[in-house]
Amino acid sequence: ATKLVYGHNNEPASVAGAQADWFAEAVKRHSGGDLTVEVFPSSQLGKLKELAEAVSVGTIAFSHNTAGGIGSLYEPFAALDTPYLYRDVDHLMKVMDVNSPVMTELNKGLIAAANVRVIYAHYFGRRNLTANKAVRKPDDLKGMKIRAVPFPIYTTAVEGMGAAPVPVDWSEVPTALATGLVAGQENPVNVILNVKLYEVQSHLMLTGHMSNAEVVVMNEAKWQGLSAAQKDAITAASAEIRERATKAIQDNESKDTEELKKRGMTVIGPEDGLDLAAFRASVDKLVQQRFGAKYGALYEKIKAVA
């Protein structure tokens, strides 16, 4: 029997955290108990960037991260987090399938560069903007400071939407919003609900400016060290959990939006005058300017996935 360690940064109660436990259970089931995955949630074994590197050097076997985070191991992955990149969740899931032409190629590069393999990826949610006022078009964000993840592709999204991106450590975000250090932030609705951001933000704008996948990765040497049957167990568990987690997130997305409404947030969608086309055009322009040369070919391949 083989024991493998899975470390991640999410709380076990969130879907992103729970899916690691589901995966551990599925691996055990599919391998008939021959393979055990031990899960360590809540950054117990290190923070995000550190976890990605830990998989690369073999400190731990598994972790998960955003595509942007995997980009610190192999740069082209960051392109998968480009704002307004996917047509819909179905498109995202097809691109992120380990057997898709895009993913096959990226995975080869990741293995060569970092000794890391993507074993599956699931839909993690659409990022939406929150603030203490109604925002309907890029101009409304002019001069507003919005908390952004300190990766170039994420700050570009916020900047493209018309705001000034400001880095704030995640543990300080609720306080920073309460006190006005930043005027808003952007995250999937489940995060907004779990961290109770409705206590400090009045408006939720369904900008959906970025669709993210959570990418589950494994140390390549550990993968190659497994027997064929063990590899099969992981592949089967991956296929199962990828669907289950995606469905759970999608189900929660509408439920969570309703819950936020109930908790007093004003939700602004396209039907309330949210000018999605303007946001998309403004963000696309900046993305092309900054990343067009680097990722242009990859963007075409992603578009071609049907």
Partner: peptide
């Protein structure tokens, strides 16, 4: 030595 041998080439995000 072990760590940088493997992870030396990775870069910080910003």
């Amino acid at each position: 030595h072990l760590f940088l041998g493997r992870a030396g080439k990775f870069e910080t995000p910003a």
